[in-house]
Design a protein around this nucleic acid. Sequence first.
DNA 1: ATTGAAATACGTGAGCA
DNA 2: TGCTCACGTATTTCAAT
Lengths: 149, 149
Amino acid sequence: MEIDGKSWKILQAIQADGRISLTELAAKVALSVPAASERLKRLEEAGVVWGYRALVSAEAVGYDVMALVGMTTAQPDKARLIAQLQSMPEVLECLHVTGQDSFILRVVTRNIRHLEQFVGSINHFGETRTSIVMSAPIALRPLAPPGGE
Amino acid sequence: MEIDGKSWKILQAIQADGRISLTELAAKVALSVPAASERLKRLEEAGVVWGYRALVSAEAVGYDVMALVGMTTAQPDKARLIAQLQSMPEVLECLHVTGQDSFILRVVTRNIRHLEQFVGSINHFGETRTSIVMSAPIALRPLAPPGGE
DNA sequence: ATTGAAATACGTGAGCA
DNA sequence: TGCTCACGTATTTCAAT
């Protein structure tokens, strides 16, 4: 799918405010409401927009610790590890990556003790390297159009 | 702020579908529309909900490579590094962490060449360790209520 | 927290460039 | 083919209970 300038404006607007009304959206991109609606629908159907989420503050709901946990896991254990991670609500994200780590997890816990307990419950799957997040100088930035080819 | 069962239901519903209407939301949590609306507004004002985002597929818009880049950076360079990263649209996220890495970046690039070029443009700030994301067994899971204290 | 009314926004259709 | 305009319907917001 090709995305022209107007569609990029739509993408940027709905990334900045996922609950924006079609009326506002149309005004922002200088289009009529049905035209904007039609373009947005196409972007959704093409899978360019694959969902809408509210962003909830982990701290505000009682998770005081966020960490990234790298794991080195032997091939035969991977499927079981993923199955277990899926059942653990502390795991917000799990990426299968190249390099020293097999997986990198994004985890939230109530406190350091809870983090220790979490790591303890998975480290029989392989070595773990835990990095505690102190701050987020850049947090979850929206996607911008890729520059010149 | 204390979050009771009904408010948790609201949080889960708007994390699952950020564009859900108040009418649907109210039905899901067994509340009248104004009651649900009022609770949601409170959650927003308290910062529990800090935004709404459309989720855009990086691949679909021309970013074929996602990677995590760990950096070891000397203290005096950190501010300049962050300033530079802020101006680079490839950087979706930058976390300041404990451990071997000073920062961990989430980066998208059009292709491997572009990734190489990106890393080249920042590696005078310190050593980098790049992990290319092959897949996401768990992608961006919503926050669930922390279990028993 | 609920009800009901007014204002606004949404989605479909027909017509035009 | 894609945009605009106009209509009926659904949703949101506000006042009062």
